[in-house]
């Protein structure tokens, strides 16, 4: 960021970005596995400008005037839906929200018919969350507008991974070379999957620490399905020397389905607490995609401690989603 000095003498031109907008070639955002490092860098660079817009007295620019953005959520959400809605509104797009439980979907309308309806109503961008992995990919094959995946099943949540990387870059200067430890239920976590892709593409060193029953099978054999990460079942060894400790939400139904013996055991072995956090670098960041179960996967002290950037992640989410909307809908109409 450029710094301002009262006399104007030390005012410097913004540094030339390492990338140009021509690096961008996506019409949809479904996952990060098909992103290049340049494209991710471009999103982070544009998000920086968007953050400046959000700091203005009037937090609105006319870049997407006349464009229609629709959110289609088949699952509950607080921050992701609000964040996308605010992002679209800050760019002056028209936004409509559709929640599955309050729509004709309850009358049995299919996903594709619903999407075609949104298209007929003029959606330029559809932001979609669905419990079924791959649903946004199917959607992208049926509509001309852009589809942004706002979370599908266990598969991907690309905008969350991008805002996580934006937050890391804001604090650490670069994502490349960072030691990032992801702790918790990586198997059922779309956030962790997208982060593993994004972080490895950007050149970070990823360590995953999960109970054996909550570790994705494919992660043990890197290849087309997963990039190479370090698997460390011992939480103390996993956290040691980390720049970023990313904690995932433990869904309580994992206990009921027998994947974990008891909540107390999970807390004992895998909870990120003050004592364990001391093993990370002194300036390590603590991240959590939310919503948090305080006292379960993360202690309250760590969740609200000085190293926690959980609330900042939410704020940065709006800027990163503005960047995505600008890149998808801000240029020439397809």
């Amino acid at each position: 960021m450029t710094t301002w000095h009262e006399d104007g003498s030390t005012l410097v031109l913004p540094p030339k970005a390492a990338v140009t907008a021509s690096a961008w070639r996506h019409h949809h955002i479904l996952d990060l596995d098909d992103f290049t490092a340049d494209e991710i860098e471009l999103v982070l660079h544009i998000a920086d400008s968007m953050k400046e817009v959000l700091a203005r007295p009037v937090k609105k620019v006319p870049a997407l005037r006349g464009r229609t953005v629709m959110t289609l959520f088949y699952e509950n959400s607080t921050r992701t839906r609000l964040s996308f809605e605010l992002a679209a509104k800050s760019l002056s797009a028209d936004v409509s929200n559709l929640t599955a439980s309050a729509s004709s979907i309850t009358k049995g309308e299919s996903l594709i018919d619903t999407l075609l309806t949104l298209e007929s109503l003029g959606a330029d961008v559809v932001i979609m969350r669905h419990p079924q992995s791959g649903a946004p990919n199917l959607a992208a094959q049926h509509i001309k507008g852009s589809v942004i995946n706002a979370g599908d099943g266990w598969h991907a949540h690309p905008s969350q991974a991008l805002l996580d990387m934006y937050t890391m870059k804001a604090h650490k200067g670069a994502v490349k070379g960072l030691k990032v430890t992801i702790i918790g239920d990586t198997k059922h976590s779309r956030v962790s999957r997208s982060n593993i892709w994004g972080l490895t593409i950007m050149g970070a060193e990823v360590t995953v620490c999960s109970p054996p029953t909550l570790l994705p099978v494919g992660l043990r054999e890197p290849g087309d399905n997963f990039p190479r990460v370090r698997i460390e079942p011992d939480i103390n060894k996993a956290i040691a020397g980390a720049d970023v400790v990313m904690v995932l939400r433990l869904q309580l139904e994992r206990m009921q389905t027998g994947l974990l013996p008891s909540m107390r055991e999970y807390i004992q072995i895998y909870q990120v607490n003050e004592e364990r956090l001391k093993l990370a670098k002194p300036d390590a960041l603590v991240m959590h995609p939310g919503p948090m179960n305080e006292g379960l996967e993360i202690s309250s002290g760590v969740a609200h401690g000085s190293q926690s950037v959980v609330n900042e992640q939410v704020t940065n989410g709006v800027a990163v989603r503005m960047a995505l909307l600008y890149l998808l809908a801000g240029g020439k109409k397809a």
């Binding site: 960021m1 450029t2 301002w4 005012l11 913004p14 970005a17 990338v19 140009t20 907008a21 021509s22 961008w24 471009l42 660079h45 544009i46 920086d48 400008s49 968007m50 400046e52 817009v53 203005r56 600008y326 890149l327 801000g330 240029g331 020439k332």
Partner: peptide, 10 residues
Amino acid sequence: EFKPLLNSTL
């Protein structure tokens, strides 16, 4: 053809 690369206003 290409969107302009954004920079920060100050």
